[in-house]
Amino acid sequence: MTLLAPEKVSSRLSHAVNDSLVLTMRHLRHIPRIPELLVFSIVQPIMFVLLFAFVFGGAIQVAGGGYRSYLMAGIFAQTVAFNGASTGVGLAEDMAKGLIDRFRSLPMARSAVLAGRTLSDLLRTVLILIVMSVCGLAVGWRTHTSALSITGGFLLLLLFGFAMSWIGAWIGLIVPSTEVANTAGFIWLFPLTFMSNAFVPIQTMPSWLQTVVAWNPISATVQAVRTAFGNTGVAPTRGFWPLEHAAVVSVGWSIVLIVGFGVLAVRRYRTASSR
């Protein structure tokens, strides 16, 4: 059982890729047919950009003064994190409708339903990041680095979003209903995103909290993205190791989360039951 012939492994792998792509297509077809979903997942980050830029922006002082530049990396990270939670809602819905039962009764790869959904959510995130960037440019956000560095920043965000998607997938499979997925999937994201350097400089917090914040994967990601966009002049790392090596730490966190929650979610999927 444990030793598989090489051709069997390769046919399994090609099935897994095929099945994942078939399901990715399924979700991409949904996008134009449920336009409300895309519209609202774009409206929310735009709303945050405007709220923070105009409402809180005046009250929050960052050295150098460019709060809107400081803010954008934070809003980007928050948005990709929240998109991860919607992965879970979608899965919980498939479960409630009995679709997961159908998929589980088919001779398809056990990882495909999850991979198809996280991949299509990743593509949706690309779309959302494009719209947000335009919105950011409109309120005065500017990058100050090479195209390569900027691309790197966006790739970091997408990788992190993909990791958050796998956490969302796992939550979507363990909750008893779509309604619970809707709250359980999002509620923990508020402390996660706010207890970070996304919206306010870390030095304004009590020192014990600074340590927690420094190790928050959101902080590393935000710090790395700020560096990549050239928006960091104003965000000191205050000697915290994870912030000084932000890009490596962000990638590390993402990989650990993808593998860890990938294993948990697929294991859960194997025994998932609709009712």
Binding site: N18, D19, V22, L23, M25, R26, R29, H30, R33, I34, K97, G98, L99, D101, R102, F103, L106, P107, M108, A112
Partner: peptide, 19 residues
């Protein structure tokens, strides 16, 4: 257990691909 946002044809084709 069908996908409401796919057409009938797309639902059946998807299942075929997964078999």
């Amino acid at each position: 257990a069908i996908d409401e946002y796919l057409t009938g044809r797309e639902n059946l084709q998807m299942v075929g691909r997964l078999y």
